[in-house]
Design a protein around this nucleic acid. Structure first.
Lengths: 348, 348
DNA sequence: CTACTCCTTTTAATCGTTTAAATATATTTC
DNA sequence: GAAATATATTTAAACGATTAAAAGGAGTAG
């Protein structure tokens, strides 16, 4: 593969001149410019970004570390980040942690070796954050996405989970529900805890008490939604509504309904976090708290690049974006507040 | 950020020794090994992979170029590739082309500058493949994924589209359908053409003629599925079955059904390419040709790395994986072959 | 004690760029 | 036309690693 030296030789100029032509760093006479460009073309030369990175000490690569790209919530985020990054001449190096902190550690350390200019991270780490601390100490910029890491001061783009959950549950209450179950996310994650908090707040706001028997601890995965959905529906004195803390679990719940022969909203109302893009032709249409995923990715990337380029004074810079509650048929039935027996009506 | 020189100084050894300790390239006495390791720890040193890449002329990075990660078909592929790559110490640099050849050109050229060791590519290019040719000439390994690029000899992992489509349509024929419409994919892509061919083959095999009025040209996007689905259902003498050439368009078709008030399989049978992971709780359950996406990604990555490491003699190495037909309720109704009038039965 | 091995460790060149500083060339000024 | 100034080009030192080849040191044989 041709190098700048060969280009210089062929154009009969110094390598500095070639570099200047390529980067436009300083004026080069028309004559030489043309000779250099010809040489580049003839040699099919492509500047070695690795060598450049070494010299200028920046790679224009960003790490993107997520739990699992296969979770439909993430691709949109990635697109947001990637589009924004690519526009400004950065590339994304992606890796999945599968929620395993060990993997996260290895990935982050490898990314640091690659000297990415910064990292976008939806962390899997609970309290064990030493690897992140040392990475930041080494001068790698870090922006937390969707989830913060406790005890570390970083820029972040977060969702207002409490608010999303609270509004959603408030809506259920307005529809007349008083016995509302929750299938929580993983409670070692802040996201999980916040959504639970929103649920509790909404109940408290409405003067309802929090019944621990209606709190089912899930882990954001399909399996837990499926299992807990079944469990809830088999109870003797079952709730009239369920609030599910993410989209993947909601699918599990629907699967459980199908197996049991339950129907929504006939037998129970359902509201959930995350728009699984299933709204269009599928039944039932779910009432959901939708997150502006693309925007979250885009903003996180912008913050990261601004920070890298020193355009950000304030630190840490934390953005809280708001979710939107979208009402659909899964919560359409109206319950009269009075008799808490089994009370179902209006199929649609 | 600490460098190898500083580590060497602190451990009072030469940089060569430090390098040997880190890479295990040659024996180092226990005494020095310990001193070096201590120094590394104390300085929070992380070897500069960029410098290493420059010297050894390989980056252990792979480019992954796809149309759009937001299409649910791709995340699985990425996971397959990433897991395989990460296991062998490679990273993935990802980028989306949005099916725009201009973007593809810029991305591939940038990846070449970054000196990725190879590229996994689901190409957006029709016949305009000069950029790929010159990239390969420059010695970048290329593996085509899902789609070949015409006129270029590369390794590839492809689906047997003809077979998938043929089996699917044959199934419809066995169910008694004779008037089967197809919503094709983009016909400038080989994938699109092959699936159409499978459709034609199946009809021909069964002694049925190909009615051009039943061939609707889509482009693999939601919009086209939605539009053509409507169009088909509004026809006076409409078909009894529709074969849709990918999952995203199928959702469009279902949406059209919903708007029109059509139901499947009551009014028409539906079979489609791609498992949109919607099988679980949603209705109707679609009969689909499922592609082994994870495996495709994994195999493509393996081939690419093997090629890079010179473990692959044969060239080009082309793998055709087979899809699986999964029968579900959307094609469950049985039509008697005889009267081609409007004939609907068994809701489920 | 010298010479020869066999390890271990160090020296120094190299990878392909960027970029300050030096040099060469062109232009202006008087 | 020489001096001063402005502009264009080149020289050469980094950046942070790897790795042949050279050097150093310990042990052994004669």
């Amino acid at each position: 593969m041709a190098t700048i030296v060969e280009v210089a030789k062929r154009a009969d100029v110094s390598i500095a001149t070639v570099s200047n032509v390529i980067r436009g760093t300083r004026r080069v006479s028309q004559k030489l410019t043309e000779r250099v460009q010809a040489a580049i073309r003839e040699l099919n030369y492509s500047p070695n970004e690795i060598a450049r990175s070494l010299k200028v000490r920046q790679t224009r690569m960003l790490g993107m570390v997520l739990p699992d790209i296969t979770n439909p919530f993430f691709p949109e985020i990635i697109r947001g980040a990637e589009d924004t990054a690519f526009e400004r001449g950065y590339f994304l190096v992606t890796a999945n942690t599968d929620e395993q902190i060990g993997r996260e550690r290895r990935i982050v350390s490898a990314l640091r070796s690659y000297r990415v200019d910064g990292v976008l991270l939806a962390s899997a780490s609970g309290k064990d954050t030493a690897h992140l601390k040392s990475t930041m100490d080494a001068g790698v910029a870090l922006v937390c996405l969707d989830r913060t890491v406790p005890g570390i001061k970083t820029d972040a783009v977060l969702l207002d989970n409490v608010r999303g959950a609270r509004e959603c549950v408030r809506h259920l209450i307005q529809k007349g529900h008083t016995r509302i179950a929750i299938i929580t996310g993983a409670l070692n994650l802040q996201t999980g805890r916040e959504r639970l908090r929103g649920y509790e707040d909404a109940l408290t706001d409405a003067g309802l008490s929090i019944d621990p028997k209606l709190v089912f601890e899930g882990d954001f995965r399909y399996e837990s939604g499926h299992r807990l959905g079944k469990q809830i529906m088999k109870q003797t004195n079952r709730p009239t509504a369920i609030f599910v803390c993410n989209g993947v679990m909601a699918i599990g719940v629907l699967k459980a309904f199908e197996e049991i022969g339950a129907e929504c909203p006939r037998d129970v109302a359902l509201a959930t976090f995350d728009d699984m893009k299933l709204d269009s032709p599928f039944h039932p249409h779910l009432t959901t708290v939708v997150q502006p995923s693309y925007e979250m990715g885009a903003r996180a990337a912008t913050i990261l690049m601004d920070r890298i380029e020193g355009k950000l004074k304030k630190a840490p810079f934390i953005v809280r974006v708001s979710p939107t509650l979208i009402l659909r048929e899964s919560t359409e039935a109206y319950l009269h507040p009075a008799p808490p027996g089994k009370d179902h009506r209006n199929r649609r």
